[in-house]
Design a binder for these strands. Structure first.
Lengths: 205, 205, 205, 205
DNA sequence: GACTAACCGAGACGGTACGTCCCGTCTTAAG
DNA sequence: CTTAAGACGGGACGTACCGTCTCGGTTAGTC
């Protein structure tokens, strides 16, 4: 869905200057834009979301404060775009036919993301998302949506192929694995590497 | 001066006015203490954690700032105690013998807490806990620990009584229900009232 | 490159569009030039010198900032020209033969200028002149020089004709009247209309 | 005049905190106060009035900006007090009986002030006073009032003693000398040392 | 008629200072 | 010794202008 047509005019991209059509005046610097996003991500990882300051990001990016305020109305909006620009790690396409093995592999990759470099980012970010709906949505988009869609599909296939019972609550099962990992991450309880295996064994027996 | 005796026991023990040795001088005002905690909770619900300021709480509680700093070393510590003082709703003791019914009831009560008045508090609070370990622990204690312990016990009994297979991963299963509810809350996806039922049906089939 | 010829005469000579050598390209807009000067004077009267901003003048004149910076190197230079373009009120040529009557008339006209519309301008301007020598000189030229020269001449004639004693300190006497008016204006003490008469009576008795 | 009664409660002194009676809270630091005034005078002499910045003064005085804003609502008010705290040079009490000699001496001392260290201060200051009535008044008080009062008295005595004609316009004559000096200073024309003598000779012949 | 060079408006650029708010500490008089 | 009040030095906020720098689009004079 989504539809291509909605993308014909990308004028609503967060950082589009005003809204008009004819562009006049000096165009916004693409390099400054990127430098700001980079600086923001850098600072986010280093100091956490609460440690972010506009002045800090500006000086890190060697940019005037106004250049930031011109583009984003608030810190969360900036962080949203910074995260959006962050390359989402390509997920390995897994479809071996074995639902359990595939799911375990997806969970494994998610767990690696969480314990790896992006984990800090997710944690720093997560702290804020309950406060800012747009942050939550972006978080969803960047870190969650893709994976959940795949898992849901995976499980649906498992049901179709008879590997899982027809009575399976697809949505719930697809959610469970991530929910547990997220629960552990956000309570900072141990994210032991055998979790994916245990999850698969327990819930897809 | 100062006196050694006053150092026998760390004088800054959070909010422990009547320390070991005999105190002299004006005793700390109990009413101020409570007013601060109330003001903090009030502000927490109204503005979220990020909107809290010591000055705001002080003026809300009609108290000097020093009166706060004298008792707590930092905002999180204050919030921890404010939350701690928040009456944790008594959980109905459920042990009907039917594991599935009991678990569903516990989840039901948890869901009600989340969608009810405390939900806001949990959300506001959760946003911060990843940043402050002591907050996380307190959150755990106030909102999670008791319930999880009971659920774990419940499930263990179910395994013992043969209602659940011996191969059950007790810890994981006890965690799953809350994890899903929490996942929904923190991503602000719909916390539909049939979730407890669906969870029990799917995972304790 | 650049061309030596273009440097023969300082290209930045204040507001000298048609410099020495043959110019090519679009000529500077005369209407923009005038709009800027008008806007500057307008703003000067409205907000005082300290309230002037290049951006404000530019937008008032519906002109780009660069169009201003292309012509003047600094705010004072712009103001100097704005004032210069300001029509200096024609002085009535007075030479009735009666030194006292003539001087009184000149002072009267000066006083009227000061209390009238130009007074604001003088005051706004005067505030700055001690800081910017070129402003001071322009002020001198526009508001003072002509009148002082005439008065000096008047008094010299008076001495020559015997109406004033031969021992008269012409320079000092010519200065005194204006000095008193200026003193009053700049201390904002009352500029009462009988001052010229009193001055003449006291100092040209 | 003035009256002692009006000084019973000096609460209106420019930097009096709010307006109430009972003083509570930490009192304002006298040393910070003085450091700010000193820094302001220093900066005023060094950079001129236009070069003053609150941040600059604050850092020069090693003081937080708020400590300045708490005391003065605006830069001019601060400068007014800084100048007020500046020791006004003691005027030599002159009353030899010879009006001309006395006046010349007063003018001489004024001229010395203007050409000396305080001259810079006066000039820097004068530039601003036409814009800010309170500055003007303070300027008047610090640099002008005392001297003018004495001169007026001097001349009045001269009239009484018959040294000056009974028809003398005391106010005007008292004003003339200073007006000329000020005129010269503010137009930055030469303040030659023989001016007092010339003035006395011309106007008190 | 095409080219060229300087102009035009608009507005973004890296900066600096503004005046406000809050931090966590301190210093008072009053209890 | 605590209390309410509030000043302290510090630092970030978001805004307004500074003087400079691109943009796309005129507007002459010269080839």
């Amino acid at each position: 869905m989504g539809g291509v047509s909605s993308l014909v005019d990308g004028d609503r991209a967060p950082s589009a200057p005003p809204a008009s059509c004819a562009r006049v005046g000096r165009p916004r610097s693409e390099s400054a834009h990127q430098a700001i996003l980079d600086a923001a991500l850098e600072a986010l990882v280093e100091d956490g979301y609460a440690g972010l300051t506009i002045e800090g990001i500006a000086s890190r990016a060697r940019v005037g404060k106004a250049t930031i305020y011109r583009r984003w109305a608030s810190m969360p909006e900036l962080v949203v775009e910074a995260l959006g620009s962050h390359v989402c790690p390509d997920l390995p396409v897994v479809d071996s036919g074995d639902v359990r093995a595939d799911l375990q592999q997806v969970l494994q990759s998610a767990l690696e993301t969480m314990t790896g470099e992006d984990g800090q980012l997710m944690a720093a970010f997560a702290a804020e998302k309950s406060r800012h709906p747009e942050l939550r949505d972006e978080f969803e988009r960047v870190f969650v949506a893709e994976r959940r869609a795949r898992v849901r599909q995976l499980i649906a296939r498992g049901v179709a192929s008879g590997q899982l019972p027809a009575s399976t609550d697809v949505e719930l099962l697809a959610e469970a694995g991530f929910a547990i990992l997220w629960h552990r991450l956000s309570l900072q309880r141990p994210l032991s590497p055998d979790l994916p295996e245990r999850i698969v064994r327990q819930f897809l027996a």
